[in-house]
Design a protein around this nucleic acid. Structure first.
Length: 799
DNA sequence: AGCCCTCGAGTTCT
DNA sequence: CTCGAGGGCT
């Protein structure tokens, strides 16, 4: 019993503290979810042990006393709080999951005798509740809720909110009307406000709710006026004469709207439990698309006379219920901060979290991105943190609850490692770059493993079943060092690997017990590896894991050269002629192929029977760009010392000379008639004599010559959509987006993800959204699916 | 020289 | 999905 009493005291202390910080200081230390959880625990304990309940318990009041600086206002008709209902986690069916709502409806059915009572339903906005008093149609006072009976006078601030009318419209209003509603900050306004604040170097608001609450409690109304606040009315307080009030809540809202008061557009009515839950689901589904933050929906028995009959429990009406959505933010503890090593050696800090349920899934990890982010958040092992699922998918640490740190023993700050946690190599962070990298390269086991995972992944070599777990073991037991080793593995190798893994994990050797199944598994893997031998050049290029080479650049390279052999021996000068390849990317590719080890791996892959399919045809546009001028231009972009030699000069020189050799043999005087000043001319000839650049340019020229020979005189037939940038939007009926993109590319088009000035065509399927709108705004040509199919048909392509 | 767009890379959980 | 940075256009 003492334990229970202590726990209750602790809960009361925590809740009081949270109230104080939230209501008085506007600096919350707990999330709503955390606060609600503590409050409910205390409620349950008080219900189970009424003798230990205290009259001033946080469960008996809505908020803390008003802060100094605002006059106190007494609410004649108290501003009520609502009973909250939450989803029951892990419930097997709808009824059970919404048990509290079902009980709410059942009680009302019993009390009213109506088997399907009618409710007024509305979204529960996340803002600040206020009461607006209108006398003779004029706004005379605005007050915050405070503790429900005493609030703060915020008239001056409320008057600055444009959504709040200073005078009621029309003439049918009662002599005294108190309007209850929510002041909030629409999401877009919040984003815009913060963007501006950041531009000016001011502190951005933490979230729209705090933005609203903080703004209304500014002592200087000018500050409030600058904040983009909005208001929705959802009820009434004092109404004189009382007879003016309509008979139903839904009619009351309409009545208020008639006076020029904003009402939430999603307000509706619903019948019975099924009607309420349907509304809950409908609003829940559109939650992310709504322009304001909501944390649930509110159900109110529609008829006022029936409301009267049901009455109140403490401060909460029995005729209304707030049905809350599962929390999207939760508080948990950082158990450790670890550093992961990625495929490229990038070091990423990850917070290991005490497991916590956020919007339906259990979260245990959250990325911290990089050192800057850790510094910005000031997150340390042991900290209590607010976790959110960003975009409802990837968990992220929103902020650290620094107030909850024990000031006498603050946790030690996270120290960035100087050595790679996987291989011990030095950690380097290039100047001006956000990421730190392990310098171990392929000697680092973590990088090697990730390189293998990438190689096998779906968009690369697509080796089905070869996931991270298996690759870990293959590397650990020495079966595989490079990607080429995969093609040497047999069924027995996989079985042996599994036996060792099981022995290591101290498991019953299932391989032995379930020999058949294990053998089937190994055979499948070997077959999947075998199947990957038949691949395309672009997939293989992507799979190699060359820094800066993703799917798109791999595709561009494959399309331009049409042959692996040309690419793996190409100089950066030649690579630069590929569209979307600039100096950095070209250098990265050349550096990769300059490594003997990488060339050996490619040889081993080819020897193992990997056959990258490719057109075998050099893109004529590429060759066109690789004339003498193109080569010189490329050398200049790669840092060759050709200051003062402009583009037009290079063009002229290229037209005048047939080849590098001819230029090298030329006297400087021959360049002068071309309009080239003496110094740049000398610089150019010096470059050709330079022991590094001279031979390099000649070699590049040789490469281009070989490519020309290979291309032959035929020349490529031009494709119907060559040079077109096409964007797909909406859902196509007869083919997937990927298929459509593939077919369009076969016609020579470049398929982009978003509409811009460069877009030549938009293909719009069903339910096309913003991209279509933007295309129309920009006057971009728009096709429907039928038109696309007709074009494909015309060129012998079928979905 | 500066801006806009696109691409690459990393991330979570079922 | 989000960030950062590379590439190319104005």
């Amino acid at each position: 019993m003492t334990d229970v009493a202590e726990r209750m005291a602790e809960l009361r202390r925590q809740l009081d503290e949270a109230n104080y910080r939230y209501f008085v200081l506007d600096d919350p230390s707990l999330t709503d979810a955390e606060y609600d959880r503590l409050l409910r625990e205390l409620e349950q304990l008080e219900a189970a042990h009424p003798e230990l309940a205290e009259p001033d318990s946080p469960t008996r009041r809505v908020g803390a006393a008003p802060a100094e600086g605002f006059a106190e206002v007494r609410h004649e008709v108290p501003m009520l709080s609502l009973t909250n209902a939450f989803e029951v986690e892990g419930a097997s069916n709808e009824q059970e999951r919404h048990r509290e709502v079902a009980e709410f409806v059942r009680r009302i059915v019993e009390a009213t005798g109506d088997p399907e009572p009618e409710f007024s339903v509305e979204p529960k906005l996340d803002g600040l509740a206020v009461s607006l008093r209108y006398e003779e149609g004029r706004l005379v006072r605005a007050a915050t809720r405070g503790d429900g009976t005493h609030g703060e006078d915020v008239t001056a601030n409320a008057r600055t909110i444009r959504a709040i009318p200073l005078r009621l419209r029309g003439s049918g209003w009662p002599a005294v009307l108190e309007v209850r509603g929510e002041v909030f900050m629409p999401r877009a306004a919040f984003e815009a406000f913060n963007a501006r604040a950041r531009e000016r170097g001011e502190r951005p608001l933490a979230n729209p709710r705090n933005g609203a609450a903080g703004s209304l409690r500014q002592l200087d109304p000018a500050v409030t006026a600058a904040r983009p606040l909005a208001f929705f009315a959802y009820g009434v307080g004092v109404v004189e004469p009382a007879s003016a009030l309509p008979e139903r809540h839904s009619l009351t809202l309409r009545w208020l709207r008639g006076f020029g008061l904003p009402i939430c557009p999603e307000v509706d009515t619903a019948r019975g439990l099924e009607g309420l839950l349907a509304y809950y689901r409908r609003i829940g589904a559109m939650r992310d698309r709504l322009p304001w933050d909501i944390d649930g929906v509110v159900y109110k028995l529609d008829r006022h006379d029936l409301q009267q009959r049901l009455g109140y429990v403490a401060r909460a009406p029995r005729w209304a219920l707030a049905h809350k959505f599962p929390a999207q933010e939760q508080v948990t503890t950082v158990e450790a901060i670890e550093v992961q090593v990625g495929r490229t050696g990038a070091l990423t800090p990850v917070a290991r979290l005490a497991p916590v349920a956020v919007a339906g899934v259990t979260v245990t990890n959250a990325t911290l991105h990089n050192a800057d982010q850790i510094a910005r958040l000031d997150v340390r092992p042991g900290d209590r943190v607010v976790v959110r699922r960003a975009g409802d998918v990837i968990p992220e640490v929103v902020r650290v609850l620094h107030a909850l740190r024990d000031p006498s023993r603050p946790p030690p700050p996270f120290v960035w490692p100087t050595q790679c946690p996987a291989c011990g190599a030095a950690v380097v962070r290039a100047e001006g770059e956000a990421v730190a990298r392990c310098s171990g390269g392929l000697y680092c086991p973590a990088q090697r493993k990730q390189a293998l995972v990438h190689f096998a992944s779906r968009r690369a070599m697509d080796i089905d079943g070869l996931g991270e777990r298996i690759i870990d073991d293959l590397v650990e037991f020495g079966f595989v060092r490079s990607v080429a080793d995969l093609y040497r593995l047999g069924v027995e190798d996989f079985l042996e690997m599994k036996r060792r893994a099981e022995a290591r994990d101290g498991m019953v050797p299932a391989t032995v017990r379930e020999g058949r199944i294990a053998t089937r598994w190994a055979e499948k893997l070997v077959a999947a590896i075998d199947a990957s031998r038949d691949t395309t050049l672009e997939r293989l290029l992507f799979a190699l894991g060359i820094l800066q080479i993703g799917e798109e650049t791999a595709k561009a390279l494959a399309r331009a050269f049409g042959d692996l052999d040309l690419i793996r021996h190409a100089d950066a000068i030649v690579l630069l002629a590929v569209p979307d390849v600039g100096p950095k990317v070209a250098a990265s590719i050349a550096a990769f192929f300059a490594e003997t080890h990488n060339q050996e791996v490619i040889d081993a892959l080819l020897a193992a029977g990997v056959r990258p399919r490719s057109s075998g045809r050099v893109d004529p546009d590429l060759l066109a760009r690789l004339d003498l001028a193109g080569l010189l231009q490329g050398a200049k972009r790669l840092g060759a010392p050709l200051e003062g030699l402009g583009e037009t000069s290079i063009e002229r020189i290229g037209r005048q000379f047939s080849a590098i050799e001819a230029l090298r043999a030329a006297a400087p005087e021959r360049l002068v008639p071309l309009g080239v000043a003496p110094e740049p001319a000398a610089a150019l000839l010096a470059l050709l004599a330079d022991p590094h650049w001279g031979p390099r340019l000649s070699a590049a020229e040789d490469q281009v010559r070989r490519m020309r020979e290979r291309a032959g005189a035929a020349g490529a037939p031009s494709l119907p959509l060559a040079g077109w940038t096409v964007v797909l939007t909406g859902t196509l009926a007869s083919l997937t987006r990927d298929q459509a993109a593939g077919l369009l590319e076969q016609l020579g088009a470049k398929v982009a993800g978003s509409v811009s000035g460069r877009t030549r065509l938009v293909v719009a399927g069903e339910a096309a959204g913003s991209k279509l709108a933007k295309a129309r705004a920009l006057g971009v040509e728009v096709w429907d699916e039928a038109r696309l199919l007709a074009l494909l048909e015309q060129h012998g392509l079928r979905p």
